[in-house]
Design a binder for these strands. Structure first.
Lengths: 173, 173
DNA sequence: GAGCTGAGTTGCATTTTGCAACCTGCATCC
DNA sequence: GGATGCAGGTTGCAAAATGCAACTCAGCTC
C-alpha cells in the first residue's frame, strides 16, 4: 500500500461529511453507474453496454459501491451465472444529490433536454428543482445563507420541529 | 493528444445533463475546492493549505473551474501578486448539489457532525434537508417517482406554474 | 460434453496524481 | 535601487488509476 491517494475522509473527517461522501461517490464513473442503476439497470453487461465503460473499471467500481453499501450484489437463484446489482436505501438516498447535479448541468450546459425525466407518479408532472430550504421548508438562495459553527448555534425554540419528515436535519446531533 | 478519457458529455450528451455536470465537477478535488470556496477561501495558498492538495493539481483544477465558468480569476489591483478566485453565479448554483452530497455523507457516514453548518440569515436556524419535490413543492421520496421519456409527458394543465421561481424546471423546453 | 453466456480477471500501454524542488513577477525594506 | 520575501504558479519524476483487448471460468443449454 503506497501512501498516495490518502482517503479524503481521513484528512477532513472531523469537520465535514463531504469528503466522506466523495470517498464513495467522487470518482469519474460512480455517478454514471448510479444513474444507470436508477434507470433500472441491474446487470454487469447492461452497465457495460449502457456506459461504454471498461470492464475492469466497472468491476472495480461496482465492488466499491457494494463495499460502501450503496449497492447490493446478489447472485440470482434461477441462473447462478447472473448477478443482480440493486440500489440499497443508502444508494437510493443519493437521488437528491444526483438530480441536483443533473439539473445544474441542464441549466448551465448548452440547453440539454435530459431524457428520461423524473415525474411524480401521482400526476405524471416532472419534478421541481432541487433547492436549499430553511428549516420550515421555505426555499432560500445562497444570498440568504451564512456559515455558522456548530457551537454558536441558537438554542432553538419551537422553530426546529417538522424538519425531519424526510431525513435527519443537518443540525441533528 | 491520446484518445483516452473521452469527455463523458460527448458520449452521452444527447439524453442527459449529468455527464456534462460531471465533466466539470466529477474530479476528486473539485467538490472540495468548491466547498472551500463556499467557506470563503479565495487565494491559491489558502486553498493549498486548507485542502493539503498538491500545488500542480490545485493549479490545474482551478484553471478548469475557471474554464468551465464556475470560478472567476482576478488579479488583485492593490497587490498584483495576488489572485482572487471567486465563485460565479454558475458556481454558486452548485450549492444544492454540494449540500445534498454532504447531507448524505452526514446521514450515512459514522455520525459526523459537520462544521461549519449553513444557517438561514434570518433566524440563524440550520437549513433543512435537500429533497426532491413535486412541481408544486411538496417533497416526494424515490418510491413516488418514475422515469418518463420527454415525449410521453402530459400536455400539462395549469399545474406547471410557479415551479420556476428559483430555477428553470426540469422539463422546461 | 461442446458450445454459449454472464461476470469477471490479467497484461500492458497511456494518463493522471502526488511530491518536492524550482521559477518568476511584484512588493517591501533598508 | 539592490537584497529579500512572497503569491502563484511550473517542471521532473515516481506511483497509481484508467483504458483496452484478450483471456478465464463457473454455470447453463442442447
Amino acid at each position: 500500500m503506497g501512501k498516495l491517494r490518502e482517503p479524503l475522509n481521513l484528512l477532513y473527517g472531523d469537520n465535514c461529511a463531504l469528503p466522506l461522501a466523495l470517498e464513495a461517490m467522487g470518482e469519474r464513473w460512480s455517478f454514471m453507474i448510479l444513474r444507470a442503476a436508477f434507470n433500472g439497470v441491474h446487470h454487469f453487461e447492461e452497465f457495460q453496454q449502457e456506459l461504454s465503460i471498461a470492464r475492469n473499471i466497472l468491476s472495480n467500481r461496482l465492488s466499491k459501491l457494494v463495499d460502501h453499501g450503496i449497492m447490493a450484489r446478489e447472485v440470482m437463484a434461477e441462473d447462478r451465472r447472473k448477478v443482480r446489482y440493486e440500489l440499497t436505501e443508502k444508494g437510493l438516498e443519493l437521488l437528491p444529490a444526483m438530480i441536483a447535479l443533473r439539473q445544474w448541468g441542464e441549466k448551465w450546459g448548452a440547453g440539454v433536454p435530459s431524457t428520461p425525466v423524473l415525474v411524480d407518479v401521482r400526476d405524471e408532472q416532472p419534478i421541481g428543482a432541487v433547492t436549499i430550504t430553511a428549516h420550515d421548508g421555505r426555499p432560500i438562495g445562497h444570498k440568504e445563507l451564512v456559515w455558522k459553527h456548530r457551537s454558536e448555534l441558537q438554542p432553538l425554540g419551537q422553530a426546529r420541529a417538522r424538519t425531519d419528515e424526510r431525513m435527519a436535519p443537518v443540525a441533528a446531533e
